[in-house]
Nucleic acid binder design. Sequence first.
DNA 1: GTTGCCAGTGTAAGCGCTATCATATATTCT
DNA 2: AGAATATATGATAGCGCTTACACTGGCAAC
Lengths: 337, 337
Amino acid sequence: MTTIYDVAREANVSIATVSRVFNNNAKVSDNTRTKVKDAALRLNYSPHLGARSLMSRRTDSIGIVLPDMHGEFFSELIRGLDSATRKLGLHLLISCSHDDTEELNASISAMKGRVDGIVIMSPLISSHDFQKYIPEKIPVIVLNGPSEKAIYSAVSIDNYAGSYAMTEHLIAEGYQRITLITGAKNNSDSEQRIRGYVDAMKNKLPDSIIDIVEGDFSEESGYNAGMQILARPLMPEVVFASNDGMAIGCLCAFDEQNISVPKDIALAGFDDIPLSRYLRPALTTIKAPIAEFCSKAIEMLVAKIEKKDSDYTVEVVKFTPTLVIRDSSKKPPLSMK
Amino acid sequence: MTTIYDVAREANVSIATVSRVFNNNAKVSDNTRTKVKDAALRLNYSPHLGARSLMSRRTDSIGIVLPDMHGEFFSELIRGLDSATRKLGLHLLISCSHDDTEELNASISAMKGRVDGIVIMSPLISSHDFQKYIPEKIPVIVLNGPSEKAIYSAVSIDNYAGSYAMTEHLIAEGYQRITLITGAKNNSDSEQRIRGYVDAMKNKLPDSIIDIVEGDFSEESGYNAGMQILARPLMPEVVFASNDGMAIGCLCAFDEQNISVPKDIALAGFDDIPLSRYLRPALTTIKAPIAEFCSKAIEMLVAKIEKKDSDYTVEVVKFTPTLVIRDSSKKPPLSMK
DNA sequence: GTTGCCAGTGTAAGCGCTATCATATATTCT
DNA sequence: AGAATATATGATAGCGCTTACACTGGCAAC
């Protein structure tokens, strides 16, 4: 392996000069600069970034801990984080906790000395539970954390508002029997979406029945929930699935039973994954501004990194998602009923 | 920041002993071991992995360079790589080249000294073009590379065989006018899929017309291609989209024009993303064994890392994908035509 | 009692780099 | 001309860790 010493020898300068050339901040004469660059090129040298970060106390990488990587929502998330960090010349160390406390802690420990800051998304495990494994005062940003009092600064999608808005919209459309399919159990995103639905129902349609079927965010659970709903004596007028994946599963179940959407039953999802607009019928859903969401998280993290210690402020930024109305929730004209 | 020195002082031992405890290989008496562990716990110490890897010449991380992160295919890929590396206690540094040579080279350089090996997926840029930026003799595995003579060991999905098998199947079903929607231009995966289609058509249905419409793997391009196909005087009997995303776009276009699948026109995709089975009609497609594919890539990479230098062998492993027949390609009984 | 061995521990030399300080040379001012 | 200043470069001390080697004391072997 070529080191800075080899280049120094080859270019007939000291290692300090080579270092200066590669951090092109200090003043080096043009002459020596090219001498060094040529030597480096000849030896195919590039600095060992691990060694560099040991001295400079910066790794230029940030760690991402996600609960899972299944489905389009997460690929959009990773994509957003990648593009936000790339702009700043930062790198991404990605880890997956599988919603398991032990794995989460292992992921966090494994990041010590490798990253300048960590972004954690942990809808199941509370930050109280991983706090003690976070190396002292490494900056942390939580994505979409539980609504408990925040220990760390957080960026989140306002699941409650989104879910409330969707329910409200469905009610305004004239639907009365609205069934919710929940996300995974104990998952904070799911819980907030449930609350949004329940509150909107209670406020806007006090006499209606609150009807909740359990799911877990997977397409399969959406399919099962759909089947379960169809098996009932009285079908709801509209099913609101807590994410698009489950809505797709539901759509599949309905189709299998020759139930037409939205004619026989309307359908709505949450997340607006890229595919949703291409479903037939196109899916009414809630769109979160993932790109801005990711940028904001990275921006806040970098601010914390820059300020070093001293910064113990906890700031929580919420993004309000927007309603995207497509065909799957359109109330058919009465004549068609 | 707590260092090994702090722990040594706290436990009243030398740093070497602390190091031994944390690498629990050497012999340390049970007494001192607990003494050290207690001290570490008290100080919330965990070793600085960057510093460790400087000495041990191992980073326990591997770099992944992907061309893009859009869509479910990539999330499945990252998921597969994560689970393969996790089993081995390795970490993942992920970077995205956006099919741009400069970004790709930047990603690779940025990995020097941070990873023990690199997995590169680069369907557009040939390994000849990034070879000179690869730090000398860091192990590299290429995923799904172009079919040119391999410089690096590679693991790939046999796109050609998959595409050939699909075309053959469609012909066997009795279809004659088969249109292919291609993937992105100059993309090696796409090119291989085109060749598979063309060869199967020529071999199995020599008199038929080879009909190719351009796409770029995005849902939108599939939608556009679908619209373009419908605008023709003579519609094909079946459309074979080079990936599932485009098939979904196509399905959307067909539906919009009241063309029913598979009654009026049949449809097939490629990749078998998790959603495909939940489409209506469920999508006939080609399933690649992504999990095995990823495991194999990591396994080969780790083998190269272990063997250190000396290993310049180039091995290419191909995975043959399998046909998944669902409703979208079912030939309707003649009576229904 | 001397030797040999071994388990358990400490000492110190780096890993490849950055950064501080000192040094050497060139440039400007009085 | 001599001092003051600016500019380019070198020597060197670490960053936090691992590891080869040296050391200590206890115990079996002769």
